[in-house]
Simulated assay, not measured.
Amino acid sequence: MATAPAAPVPASAGAGPAASRTVTYQARLRPLNHQTGSGLLTLRLRESTATITERYSGLAARLNGAPYPHLQHIHGGARGMCPPASADRNGDGVVSTTEGTPYYGPIQTTLSVRGNVTPQAGTDLKIAPKGPSVRYERTITLSPAAVASLRKGIAVVVVHGDDPRLLGRKARNEKSDVVPSLPLAVTSPVLCGVLQPMPAGGAATGTGSTAGTGHAEAACLFGAGAVLAGAGALARALLVWRRNRTAFRPA
């Protein structure tokens, strides 16, 4: 299913004092190409410095007897969407990297485990996360193009590396459309998510959408207490009035 792009951040957020603030983005990673798995990536951006925390699981575990390398990137500069199944133009049952590019755009930053994070490192299997699950944490410098895509709401996280067993026979035997020396499965997208800006502060800090909950609950409790106290005072006044009435009743 295609994912609509997030609402763009106002232009003022990309320049001047606003650009020096820390802005938090999140992408929920959902499977493509008949694959399994899911994940969540959080990116905290201050100027061009990004602190990234990512968790995913359920991907292919091994490739040719070794831990499966899952290339991953921030793409951008296009429609800011994850590609729908209809993006498969050649009918092999797989949305390849090339077929998905009109939706999520070219690589703008590589999410490697070490070293190079430029687009040129985008197909370097040696520095890609490996295995069926990952706990990825890294602080990197984003490219100017990636920062621009984030601020425009069109940055997309794409994790690559399909499980060949879940592909049709035709696709299972095809070569990669971007690195012909590799199988199609290795470079085709497996997880995808649009990076969307989170409310300032975020729910985890208590300053997001639930920040006022404690104050609201306190106000409700205070109001309820005041009502009960008022009711008690009224009852006592009524009792005194009845006693006085009885005491001064004519014989």
Rank of each mutant, 00 (worst) to 15 (best):
T210H: 14
P183L: 02
V186C: 02
G230I: 03
V179K: 12
A203I: 02
A233L: 14
T205F: 04
P189W: 01
A235N: 08
V227I: 14
V227W: 09
A231R: 11
T207A: 14
L228V: 13
R236H: 09
C192H: 00
A235T: 10
A216N: 08
L184T: 05
A185I: 00
P199L: 03
V186K: 00
P183E: 04
V227L: 15
V178H: 05
A203P: 04
P180E: 12
G230A: 14
Q196M: 06
G193R: 01
E217G: 07
A211F: 02
A235I: 08
E217C: 08
L234C: 08
P197D: 05
G214R: 10
L182P: 02
G201C: 03
A219S: 14
G212D: 13
A218L: 15
L182G: 05
L234H: 09
S209D: 15
A218K: 15
V190M: 01
S188Q: 00
A204E: 12
L238K: 11
D177G: 07
G212H: 06
G202K: 02
A211Q: 07
D177W: 05
L184Y: 03
G193W: 01
C192A: 01
A218E: 15
G202V: 04
L228Y: 07
G212V: 00
S209F: 14
S188D: 09
P189Y: 00
A237V: 06
A200Q: 07
A204R: 08
G230K: 05
G201Q: 02
T210E: 09
L191I: 01
G223N: 14
A237Q: 13
A235P: 06
G230D: 11
P183D: 03
P197L: 01
A237H: 10
A229C: 12
V186P: 02
L182K: 06
G212C: 04
A219V: 11
T187P: 06
T210K: 09
L238E: 13
A211R: 04
G201Y: 02
L195M: 03
S181W: 02
H215V: 09
V190N: 00
S181G: 15
A200E: 09
A203F: 04
T187Y: 03
C192D: 01
L234F: 10
P189E: 01
V190A: 05
G230L: 13
L182T: 08
A219W: 10
T210N: 10
R236G: 08
